[in-house]
Each structure stands twice: as structure tokens, then as C-alpha cells.
Design a protein around this nucleic acid. Sequence first.
DNA 1: AGCTTAAAGCTAACGTCATTAGCTGAGGAG
DNA 2: CTCCTCAGCTAATGACGTTAGCTTTAAGCT
Lengths: 185, 185
Amino acid sequence: MPRAGLDAAAVTAAGADLADEVGFDRLGMGAVADRLGVRPPSLYKHVTSLADLHQRIAVLATTELGDTLREELQGLSGVDALRAAAQAFRGYVQEHPGRYAATLGDRRTAPDDEFARAGDRVLRSLAVVLRGYGIAPAEEVHALRMLRSALHGFATLEAGGGFQLGTDVEDSFTWLVGFLDRGLR
Amino acid sequence: MPRAGLDAAAVTAAGADLADEVGFDRLGMGAVADRLGVRPPSLYKHVTSLADLHQRIAVLATTELGDTLREELQGLSGVDALRAAAQAFRGYVQEHPGRYAATLGDRRTAPDDEFARAGDRVLRSLAVVLRGYGIAPAEEVHALRMLRSALHGFATLEAGGGFQLGTDVEDSFTWLVGFLDRGLR
DNA sequence: AGCTTAAAGCTAACGTCATTAGCTGAGGAG
DNA sequence: CTCCTCAGCTAATGACGTTAGCTTTAAGCT
């Protein structure tokens, strides 16, 4: 029997993909093992537990989200930066609902582990957006939390099917970005 | 052996309390049964499955949240109504994180079941807040979704420990309400 | 090439948990 | 007082995460 050639990253990637497809709450060791052509116990050579896999997916997702934000924000400022960041955030949650769900749920953490660091990079990207608006330093944290709340709230409600049909969600998103832009100026 | 005298509502209430205490994801039939002084299989006389219990807790939570909002909004309008609604929303999630978590997670639903109806009442209360601002009818849905996103996002991030220490979350919340008030006028 | 060795993957087994089947006795209706 | 419904119980099943211990791959060294 030939080896599968796995490592922690491969297991994490398979778990992340599966979470996006079937939902984070339905992510199990058995399904991940199936997908990798391996038996469940083999995964424990690369990952210490299902909780550990969750944590790794959370780090992966946060890192990817941060990368996407940095990518999309290059060369933009003002409304353009705001719109780009909002779109990138929402788009990531739409494309990777399972990954994003992994980052939620009380992942309280030591202040300097990998997840916290990845999260900081996301926040720094959002802070860059705000800097273009010339927010007073004392208010920057508040504005950052507001921005994050709005984006996180909109994206998760949309991904969870929370917006009833009837009015186009696309229009609501555009309106939200406009609202934030006006308020920040 | 005397009877416990349970019914669906009692089981749901016990489950909701337990979810608030230990977290929605750690809610299990065994723990609920323990709390009620009963064996796990007995619960199935009142609830068809763990998923059914989840759904019932979601309905309970949404109904309670709607009641709280209506209660707190009596006689208020403008900023006062906005502040009251925001506080009520945030306070409910803080006091009942397990219950609120039950309402999340892809509870896509037939358009006229009990959960959808309870959710509509919550939305109607938020719509009342907006009406005090004289939003154009065409924008009302967008403003409603924005308001809900902001409150939901802030409350869930706070409940999940998402805001790093350093700056007072209380101040950020006040700032958020102010931001929304300014933007809606 | 042959030898050694860390570890990748496997089978077997265990514990926990949700759920089902089928029994028993409590307690309200007559 | 009797009957019968059904609340709650015990026993059993199946799914799943996890551990223990074995086998064998394949990389590194001589």
C-alpha cells in the first residue's frame, strides 16, 4: 500500500474544503479521511484532534482573508478602498462559508498565537481603509470595530440565509457601503 | 417513581438555559436530561430530536428577543429608540449567548413557520426605530438590513470574545449608536 | 546496493452520544 | 374502582472521535 503523502497543511486544506461544501458543523474526521483516501486514525499523525483541525482551519481562513484584503486594497483609498474591502470581505464569506464559520465561535485565544496574529493582519487592513478618511486617533478603534461589525454582520447574515427574499441583497450591500462612506466622512 | 411532569416547553427551557451556560455547541441530550432529573430517552416523548430542540430554542430566543425589543421601545423615538433597541439587542445576546447562537447557523426555513414569524416581529421592531428617522420607503429595507447587520455583528463579535482588550467595548458601542444615528438623519 | 530508523498508515478496540424498541407503571377519565 | 393513555425507563444499536499497538514505507547513511 503506497503512502498518501499527507501533512498538516493537506489535512487542513481538505477539512476547509469540506467545511465549505457541507457546512462547518457537519465537518467530521471520517469525511476528511475519506476525501484524502485514508482511514480516520491516520489523520491523528498530522492533527491532534478535531478541535485542533478546527483551529487550523480558522488560522487558514483568517490568513486567506487577510491576504485577499491586502491584495484588493492595493493602490486604493477613500470610498474605493472601502468598497473593495467590503466586497472582498463579503466575497470571501460567500465563497468560503465553512472556513469563515471556523473563525467564529468563541475562539478566545492567547494574545500571541497564530490565529490572533492572522486576525490582527485583517484588522490592520481595515484600519488602512479608515486611515483614508482621517479619523481622529481616539476614535479609530471605535470606527474599526464598527466597520468590522457591519461587514461581519452583513456577511454572516447573508451566508446564513438570514435575509428574506423580496429585495435584492446586492442593492442592500451597495447601500451599506454608501452609508458607511457618508458616515465616515 | 414519581413523574417529572415535563412537556416540550420545559425541555426547551432547560435546553436554552444549558446552552447559555455551557455554549450552544456543547448542548447535548444527556446534559438536558440530567438537568431535568430524567433519562435521555425520555426527552424524545417531548422533542423529536436534538435538531428539533435546537429549532425550538431558536424560536424561543427569537420570540424573547422580539418581546424585549417591543418592551424597551415603548414610548421612544429617534435616537432614544435607536439606543434602546441597540442596548436591548446587545444585552440579550450578552445574557443569552447560547439562545442567540441557536438562531444562527443556516436555519433556512419555510416562509411561514414559527421561527420565520418570530423573526419578522424582531424586524418589525427595528423597522419602527427607522420609521422615526423618516427613511424613504425605497431605502427602508436597505436601512433595516444595515441596522440589523451592525447590531448582529457587534453583539456576536463581542459575545465571541472577538474584540481584543485595550479599549473599552462600552465606548465603542456608544460610538456605534452615535454613528448610526448621524448616518440615518 | 544494503541497513537502519522515524513515522505514515492500518486494524482493532473503547467511550461517548443520539436515537430506537419495547416494557412498566402513574394517574386522569369513566 | 377500573381502564387506558402515555411519561419515563432499561436495553440495544449505530455513528463518531479517539487511543493502542502493529506493519511497512521510504528517506538517510554507510
